[in-house]
């Protein structure tokens, strides 16, 4: 690990033993993120995004899953730490924002108290300081009339305001890394746009590193620097956002981009479907996981798993495909 690495994931495998067999939700994933950088993880539902994020944060309980590989956050070996030391990282080194802010909020306790409590995860913070910090944090996350709003309860707030409060709690102890798992999926687009702007602002202002998990490639496009596309537990493609968007190379990435409806296209056209369905992770296909749905698949694809290969022109742009190229739109 180099000094510049905030998050390092090496060869992570996460498996869930179930009655019907073993589900490998994360399949040999490696990723790195520098301090202050923003990474988007995209993929369709069930591709392993949440399991990856939760496991990297140390939230997946070893009792429920078999985990192998390494994760370090700001130098801490997350998977090797005991329960107590892992918990001590939460809030102070790394925090998470979820799709449903109510999962992080108590419905009745005034929001100011909850934020203050989050701020007190740092033992150096006194009760008084924490109360002042709650007001300051509400202002930071864009909630007007903060001195009055500290007394509000979660159920009195709109969905967007609740998510702002959840973000305030997550950043209360100035973590270096923030995971956001579908943070705007439940919100209206106009509210989503403002919350995404807030993430931009927090990253710029406090140098927070961000891992944004989303099923929506568009959300990730403007609000992260790097993107990793997941399919059936594996990284299909990754690299600088602009490079990946401009030249999607693994066939799933290009098919995914063609399947997204174009909003302000000059000519109206229907998005292009991807045939079939994502694989059943209890019995995934051999070789390339996208093989059964891919128009370019060759016998090799069905036999051998493609490794991540570098694409010459953009540093860090890698794809896992035997026959790379763009979907002919």
């Amino acid at each position: 690990m180099t000094d510049g690495t905030l998050l390092s994931i090496k060869d992570l495998v996460v498996e869930f033993p179930t009655g019907a067999g073993t589900v490998r939700a994360v399949d040999h994933v490696s990723l790195e993120l520098g301090y202050g950088e923003r990474l988007g993880i995209v993929g369709e539902s069930g591709s392993g995004k949440s399991v990856l994020a939760r496991t990297a944060m140390g939230l997946t309980r070893p009792g429920t899953a078999r985990i192998s590989g390494q994760v370090t956050i700001a130098g801490h070996p997350v998977l090797e730490l005991g329960e107590r030391r892992r918990r001590a990282l939460w809030g102070r080194e790394v925090a998470m924002v979820f799709q449903d802010p109510l999962s992080a909020l108590h419905p009745i306790t005034p929001i100011g108290e909850q934020i203050a409590e989050a701020a007190r995860r740092d033992p150096r913070t006194t009760r008084r300081q924490a109360a002042a910090r709650a007001v300051e944090l509400l202002e930071t996350v864009g909630i007007p009339q903060a001195t009055r709003r500290v007394h509000a309860r979660a159920h009195e707030l709109s969905g967007g305001m609740r998510q702002r409060v959840a973000i305030a709690m997550a950043i209360a102890c100035r973590p270096k890394l923030l995971f956001a798992d579908e943070p705007t999926t439940a919100l209206d687009v106009t509210v989503q746009a403002r919350i995404l702007d807030l993430f931009d602002q927090l990253c710029a202002e406090f140098g927070i590193g961000l891992v944004m998990v989303s099923h929506d490639l568009g959300v990730v496009g403007r609000h992260t620097d790097h993107v990793a596309v997941m399919y059936a537990g594996r990284i299909a493609e990754r690299g600088p956002v602009r490079a990946v968007f401009a030249r999607p190379s693994m066939r799933y990435t290009s098919a995914l981009m063609a399947a997204i409806p174009r909003h302000r296209a000059a000519e109206q056209s229907l998005p292009r479907p991807i045939p079939g369905q994502p694989p059943n992770l209890l019995a995934p296909p051999p070789g390339c996981r996208f093989g059964p749905r891919c128009g370019q698949a060759s016998p090799r694809c069905h036999a051998e798993q493609p490794p991540l290969l570098a694409l010459g022109d953009a540093p860090g742009h890698e794809y896992a495909c035997w026959h790379p190229g763009e979907a002919d739109r």
Partner: peptide, 16 residues
Amino acid sequence: VALQDAVPSLDLSDGL
């Protein structure tokens, strides 16, 4: 207009 402006676009060259 506000609604259309808020849609995240895949086309990164769109007016910001």
